[in-house]
Design a protein around this nucleic acid. Structure first.
Lengths: 151, 151
DNA sequence: TTTAAAATTGTTATATTATAACATTTAAGT
DNA sequence: ACTTAAATGTTATAATATAACAATTTTAAA
């Protein structure tokens, strides 16, 4: 699915970006949170909470479910991670500074997911619900299907 | 949230439509499935699986989780019910014959949900992912926010 | 620089959502 | 009636997530 050429670079740049964002916002990017984010970025297949938990256990942490869910909460609030509700999994945000009108393509063959943006799309969506006099707080737009590489 | 004027009528028409659709498709709309659909239609607040379970228990059924989930599976396959992934709840489909490019507005105040259609929206969405050479199988589009009545 | 307050993490327990596997019953077609 | 397939019953458990309180660490105030 992915167009990321060198995944090591992909991870490192995401981590560096996260560092900067937390610094700017005065948030504490602790070792635990950092490690959870790194584990999520290890793959473009969205991570399951309990898989992250298992991986943490293999390391220094005394990991229990709340350990992971709290870190996930922090990362979501900070915009560094998104939850994909249609598959109960978590993915690193590819442009955390301006996540806006984005959606996710999730391949049911290779299981990879990709975050996409489309201003036209966003506009059409916005328009649709203002007609319904509805004040949006959070939009979930996820497409399950088959990606180009898997056909 | 809703523009349904008389909810009794709303329920009855949904049930009648479901009857017809199952008949046309040669599907067995059993008492259990019928009752689950009716319980879902009782409110425009999407129903939780275990609440349906509790309500079934108050009736003739020996209800256990699979009782409800199987009925929900049937109703979803038939297009009579949709699952809202962002809130893990189930809602009756308001136009089961041609559900297409629909999305859901979910009010976080009154908890009601409304199914909406917008061809422009659908088109914009379709376009967006064909650019990514992606073959969609299922689209999840849910908007959490505040409805007109709740402001 | 101690100290108080706040944030983070640890820990135990449990809630919520959903499915697997196999037995029994009911309905449909021969 | 008989056979098969579908639906339902039943037991057990998997998968996902949170509540509540304790201990620790960090921050910032005195």
């Amino acid at each position: 699915m992915l167009d990321c050429q060198n995944h090591e670079v992909c991870i490192e740049s995401a981590m560096r970006e996260a560092d900067l964002i937390c610094q700017e916002k005065g948030l504490r990017f602790t070792e635990l949170r950092r490690e959870v984010l790194r584990l999520i970025w290890l793959s473009h297949v969205p991570a399951k909470a309990y898989d992250i938990l298992d991986k943490l256990k293999g390391k220094a942490w005394s990991a229990k479910p709340p350990t992971v869910y709290r870190a996930l909460d922090f990362l979501q609030e900070t915009g560094l991670v998104h939850k994909l509700d249609s598959i109960n999994a978590y993915i690193g945000c590819s442009h955390p500074r301006e996540h806006n009108g984005c959606y996710f393509l999730i391949c049911t063959d290779c299981n990879e997911a990709k975050e996409c943006c489309s201003p036209e799309l966003t506009d059409a969506i916005e328009l649709a619900w203002t007609k319904n006099s509805f004040r949006p707080k959070k939009v979930t737009l996820e497409v399950l299907g088959q990606c180009g590489e898997c056909e």
